[in-house]
Design a protein around this nucleic acid. Structure first.
Length: 827
RNA sequence: GCGGCGGUGAUGGAAUGGUAGACAUGGCGGCCUCAAAAGCCGCUGUCCCUUGGGGACGUGUGGGUUCGAAUCCCACCCGCCGUACCA
């Protein structure tokens, strides 16, 4: 054995230099000629993409896992003959760089570019196969020029609009937030409790796409839990809108209900404290003061307290009544904080007999409870207990009595429609996307305000509206850009008169909602992309990232693609055909890594100690890649030992002779050749379809172990086995894979087609026949492969161990599974 | 509450109707060495029979389907993630 040691610090930079010098991973676009430009038939494309990183400091271990995963897939796709697009960029705008600027005075651009340099360095050092010719940061004017262009396209189609609304405001970050950025009533970034503010802001009309965003989930290969999160978030429920008329004021109040069948049971009516008509309704009644007091209290209450699950129901009467359109009775109106302004119409019909919340309220305020659906025990419903939310025949419902409530549902909606009192309706939980932010480090919104012309879009030719430098980044409730007077003050593109620029910037999720489109045509300075070039690559065939983006980024991107498709700017309906969500790497203590816990594992330290290959292999070997797993130092050492074992084999066997399998191997050589073919089959299977990288790597380990177990086998067989191990390992540990493969074959692993197993080597002459008696293993015998069932049965019945178990019993039946087992059933 | 996912040795995990525990970690023993490191080889689910070998048990719990169940079905317990006074 060699005296030299496996030294990744020598091997890895050598290959990295070669790949950089030769630009190995660059893939040019196909020329787009007149008329043509569609995807060429001569190759199958594969767009493999990991979520782009937000550059902050240095990459962490989660990045390593993300890119190790994507790179393995990209390499595998290349070697099975696909043309692979595997680009990289940076999600470079955002609050952390800006907050850092406030603290240190360093311009966010400087800090961000420094981080980008670090990320780029490490991606090279990890040996990730990236097409660097397409790299960009979303903070570069050559990119955000087109972000602004998309904004204008949305504005043109009225998909971007400005309106005043009660919006979520983070008092710490001094900016508004999208609904999706509020977690449990707190800012997802800093954890401060959000406040409601009435402000005029920019929105994207994502709600126009709610139905398609929901329905098209069925068309994409995404993990079920991510789809389910999106379905939840969009929250479609179908029901009816029903009008309740207040005669005293002569106003119709519509409510949304999913249970029009219970309309006869609506015995009171409740409005949200935020409902704009609450004060108007109470005005002049003896309840006026009480209503004011209640509403003011509700509006100042913290979101967290108000939403508390076990909170008792409170509310006050408005002193008015509305008419139940179907029963004709006048029912009292209330204001209560359990009704939400943001959902439905901000008012509800209350059916205490068949809704838990309405029931609790009715009990607290002694309101009438009228059952309209009879519960039946076989429906699982208590025939007497209320509230009853199950199904059953209608009662107390006039002409609808006696029919099943599901049938009554349709009948009542039809009746409402005919009488002009309501109609079928669908309600969504999804709100429009609030995209403006009162912060500096983001993409400027390309709009100017002119005293004469009003809101005017910046002409396309004037893009980009460049982000100016400012002195003071500190947020003061308005964008720091507002202080850049020279920049704000401009002239109107329409009339030439004095005008002022929009000083809000865009939510950074806007930047990342289309970056994968730009990669396809990253160098195009005349357009965001050429539709024909986009057609060569889109959609992304495999997207890989963290589950934390299940709603925000993934929903916004889907919305963008649908909106752009409607504008005939691209030809797909979904951006990401398949999605893989990786699990988190936890600290060695099993907790989420955080500097405050002191359990952070820095990839730089691991790579310096064990090399990039060992680090990459280990994060893939830890367990199924979609599962969380705790870091283990001894685990990475084990993988390093495995790589070193393979490397030492190549030391012994290096040389110019071939690594072709021997023609007619026997004995140890045959065992080795078979094992190598078994590994090819196993790794190929683990990588196609499912991403069982952990078991793929385990199979290569088995192969290497087998080679060690047969040190005196025929050299041709050993060379073939080692070269095969290197070839299979290449997608996971590209440096060592290339190194060993070249030593044995003189060729480059990435230029080789993926190996195909020799079917003749996948089966042996004999197999181990498992003999069971009544389902329990009693013996294992060697039997010839492909033997007929009768022969296997006889073999098993001849076994003395089997016979001993059958003593005194009668054989009832014998089950034979060819090439596997025999089960003797005896009584 | 609703939706999704999961529960297997000391540990990460493998096995998706056919030999439970691949592979790796940790542990124990051996070889090499003056010694150590590295490396190589072997053993390692639990309990029992006092061990050449054999037996029983064993995949959260209880039931079911099946010749055969970690795997399929029903009920329950526990954990994680998302969401929630959504009408």
């Amino acid at each position: 054995m060699s005296e030299r040691r496996y030294d990744p610090q020598e091997i890895e930079p050598r290959w990295q230099r070669l790949w950089a010098d030769e630009r190995t991973w660059e893939v040019p676009n196909q020329p787009v000629g007149r008329g043509g430009g569609q995807r060429s038939e001569s190759f199958e494309k594969s767009y493999v993409l990991e979520m782009l990183p937000y550059p902050s400091g240095e990459p962490h271990i989660g990045h390593l896992k993300n890119y190790a995963l994507g790179d393995a897939i990209a390499h595998f796709h290349r070697r099975i003959g696909r043309r692979v697009l595997h680009p990289m960029g940076y999600d470079a705008f955002g609050l952390p760089a800006e907050n850092n600027a406030i603290k240190t005075g360093v311009h966010p651009r400087v800090a961000t570019d420094r981080s980008i340099a670090a990320y780029r360095h490490w991606f090279h050092r990890w040996g990730i196969s990236i097409d660097w010719s397409r790299e960009f940061g979303t903070h570069e004017p050559r990119y955000y020029r087109w972000t602004q262009w998309i904004f204008l396209k949305l504005f043109e189609r009225d998909l971007a609009y400005r309106k005043e609304a009660a919006v979520k405001w983070c008092p710490n970050d001094q900016t508004v937030l999208a609904n999706e950025q509020v977690i449990d009533g707190r800012c997802e970034r800093c954890g401060f409790e959000v406040e409601l503010r009435q402000l005029e802001q920019w929105f994207f009309r994502i709600t126009d796409y709610a139905d398609r965003l929901l329905d098209d989930l069925d068309e994409i290969r995404w993990p079920e839990h991510v789809k389910s999160m999106q379905r939840n978030w969009i929250g479609r429920s179908s029901g009816a809108e029903v009008s309740f008329r207040c005669h005293e004021l002569g106003i119709d109040y519509p409510v949304f209900t999913t249970r029009p069948d219970t309309l006869f049971g609506a015995t009171f009516f409740v409005m949200a404290p935020e409902h704009p008509d609450v004060f108007r309704l109470a005005a002049g009644t003896r309840r006026e003061a009480e209503v004011h007091h209640y509403v003011n209290h509700a509006l100042t209450e913290k979101a967290e307290d108000r939403g508390a699950a076990e909170k008792p129901k409170t509310g006050v009467p408005l002193g008015r009544t509305v008419r139940n359109p179907i029963s004709g009775e006048q029912i009292p109106m209330y204001v209560a904080d359990y009704v939400l302004m943001e959902y439905g119409t901000g008012a509800i019909m209350a059916v205490p007999a068949h809704d838990e919340r309405d029931h609790a309220f009715a009990v607290a305020y002694d309101l009438p409870i009228r059952r309209v659906i009879e519960g039946t025990p076989e429906d699982g419903g208590d025939a007497h207990g209320l509230p009853y939310t199950g199904d059953g025949p209608m009662v107390n419902s006039g002409e609808f009595d006696g029919i099943h409530n599901r049938a009554a549902y349709d009948a009542i909606v039809t009746w409402l429609d005919r009488e002009g009192n309501g109609h079928r309706s669908v309600s969504f939980r999804l709100r429009d996307w609030l995209v403006s932010r009162q912060r500096y480090w983001g993409c400027p919104i390309p709009i100017v305000y002119c005293a004469r012309c009003g809101m005017v879009p910046v002409p396309e030719a004037d893009l980009p509206v460049e982000l100016p430098d400012v002195e003071d980044y500190k947020p003061k409730g308005r964008s720091p850009l507002a202080a850049a007077e020279d920049w704000v003050s401009t002239s109107c593109p329409q009339c030439g008169g004095p005008a002022r620029r929009e000083t809000d910037t865009m939510d950074t999720f806007v930047d990342s909602s289309w970056y994968y489109l730009r990669y396809c045509d990253a160098l195009d300075d005349d357009a965001a992309w050429d539709r024909r070039v986009l057609a060569q690559w889109m959609a992304v065939d495999q997207y890989i990232g963290g589950v934390e983006h299940a709603i925000l980024h993934l929903l916004y991107s889907r919305f963008f693609v649908k909106a752009l498709a409607d504008m005939e700017l691209l030809d797909v309906q979904e951006p990401f055909e398949a999605l893989f969500t990786q699990g988190m790497i936890l600290g060695p203590d099993g907790y989420k890594m955080s500097s405050s816990k002191g359990n952070v594992v820095a990839p730089s330290a691991i790579v310096e100690r064990y090399g990039a290959d060992a680090a990459r292999c280990y994060v893939l070997f830890m367990g199924p890649p979609d599962q969380d797993a705790a870091w283990s130092d001894s685990g990475v050492e084990g993988v390093y030992r495995f790589l070193a074992r393979l490397w030492r084999l190549s030391e012994d066997l290096a040389g110019p002779s071939s690594a072709e399998p021997p023609l007619e191997p026997d004995g140890d050589a045959l065992t080795l050749v078979r094992k190598a073919n078994w590994a090819i089959e196993k790794v190929t299977g683990d990588m196609s379809g499912r991403f069982a990288f952990n078991t793929a790597i385990a199979a290569i380990m088995e192969l290497v172990n087998e080679i060690y177990r047969h040190p005196v086998a025929d050299e041709a067989a050993r060379r073939f086995a080692v070269a095969t191990a290197a070839s299979l390992l290449f997608p996971f540990a590209p440096h060592l894979g290339a190194e060993v493969y070249e030593r044995l074959t003189g060729r480059r692993a990435w230029e080789e087609p993926w190996p195909a197993a020799d079917p003749a080597m996948l089966t042996a002459d004999a197999f181990e026949l498992v003999c069971q008696v009544n389902g329990k293993v009693r013996d294992r015998l060697s039997a010839p492969t492909g033997a007929p069932r009768e022969q296997l049965e006889q073999l098993a019945l001849a076994s003395s161990r089997v016979r001993a178990r059958l003593d005194g019993l009668t054989v009832v039946r014998v089950i034979v599974v060819p090439d596997k087992l025999v089960n003797v059933v005896a009584r």
